[in-house]
Design a protein around this nucleic acid. Sequence first.
RNA 1: GCGCCCGUAGCUCAGCUGGAUAGAGUGUCAGACUCCGAAUCUGAAGGUCGCGCGUUCGAAUCGCGCCGGGCGCACCA
Length: 554
Amino acid sequence: MKETIRNLIAEALDKARDAGQLDLNCSPEIVVEEPRDKKMGDFSTTIAMALAKTEKKNPRVIAEAIAGNMKTTDGDLAGVEIAGPGFINLKMEPSFYLNGLLEVAKRGTGFGNCDLGKNQKVLLEFVSANPTGPLHVGHGRGAAVGDMLGALLKKAGYEVFKEYYVNDVGNQMNTLGRSTWLRYQELYGKNIDFPGDHYQGEYINDVARSVQEEKGDSLLEKAEDEVLPYFREFSARYILDGIKEHLQAFRVEFNGWFSEESLYEGDSVDRIIDGLKDKGYVYEKDGAVWLKTTDFNDEKDRVVVKQSGDRTYFCSDIAYHQNKIKRGFDKIINIWGADHHGYVARMQAVVKTLGFDLENFHTLLVQFVALKRGGEKVAMSTRSGEFITLDEVVREVGVDATRFFFLMRSSDSHLDFDMDLAKKETPENPVFYIQYAHARICSIFRTAEEQGFALPDVSKIKLSRIKEKEELDLVKKILAYPEVIQKSAEALEVHRVSFYLQELVGQFHSYYNKHRIVTDDKELTLARLFLVDCLRTLIRSGLGLLGVSAPEKM
RNA sequence: GCGCCCGUAGCUCAGCUGGAUAGAGUGUCAGACUCCGAAUCUGAAGGUCGCGCGUUCGAAUCGCGCCGGGCGCACCA
């Protein structure tokens, strides 16, 4: 929509130049925006102010030269005005918008798709919680953001691959296995001194009971060294299965689960390190192997292989990212919890040493979630095992509300998640506000059908009957959707869509309260039904991105 | 001490990457269903955009310095 306006202005600029009114020895970007105050017009541009410097003329003089070269006699342009220091304000004919509506009808939920991504392949890695315990609410936020970003990027023309990185290597796995082993022994009445640095959560008992079901007491008398591998693998698998189940219940799907352990099959990790050594990025010191991340803005170099010969987590990450690059992705996006922000610099260093363009490497940090209940913050601590799991929240407040609450805020802002509010089926709850609009439209159609109305072919609808201020505003808002999609995909900011939907639906509710859709006037009714049908399509599309359902009845 | 994020209405947050008189929701107050769903709508009140300099035609937005809150600063994962 704005593109059309931009072209109109560009044409006027050319004419002004041809007529010798402007020099135009440079071509600045034409900024088109919608003025806050609608009285000022439908669109406005600051081009005259931007040109003031190079043209060495008063912005108002420039504005007049441009405005003078815009036709209002035919086409969609209704009026041009100059205001303030040199804003050029444009008013459009209703037809301009109404014709845009046909596009919605034609493309359905595909309306708003764009070619920003040009089919580039994107790897989206998110959640990636260690398989040492169930997902908590913080992971849930990352899951919702990642899932929606995937949907958004797909809509914006990218080919998206969503991946979960499973950290199934390292000491933590041994600790996990041992935790289960100890709890297992406890089940048989053994008095165990459970170490403080082992996993304290109640879920470990569940794992132990599951071992009991499978193996009975057959492992009880065996030596720890002998059974530990079994406990380790059993626990990891059990917990990962739980994670998968909870994510699925939360409507988050992954295309791939990447095992850290798989990186170490063969000698590929050593080869990568050797490769970096040849390039001079890796050196040895104090018996350890280091990567010179300080060459790329990190505050200190990082250990890749420990003195002990063990490889660090960081080492795996190097190999993992090398793997991502090798798989041919054009764009790599990681979504991490904000507590990992200290790793951003070093991962950028890694990606750069591996020869990947940093322009196409993004790390999104999702800030913490503070859970609230009855106005009180719920204390959480992973170490002590006292935390609220994602699954508990989802069971209590439902998938729709949980997802929406995670997606309604900018992800780099801390989130207060008020469970009591999320559960309320009242106007205070923004999820229902949007879903209600959808249900309401469906209800309108039920009424309309009872009265014998059915939407005919688009060509038979008299769009010109749509002329109330509220409905034209609504049409305008509908047509802003593609831009919202594009902008939020560019910025990797998922919350913009949520805000847009709330605004969109708000306009509908106002309109609905002021004007009747189904009336005695058949032509008018059909035109309005058509408008509202387009809106319904859009709500479905938007809620679809959020992964929130669009119910026909509530 | 260093680094990242945040600071906007009583509360929770937007603010389209520098534009016109800073916006929503919620809460408070006052109103609207014999009529397509009142889970809705209309109106009022509510602001030194944390503070101070600077950049320019123009700053909530950009830069620097403070103040306050959160989170990180491992040869853990």
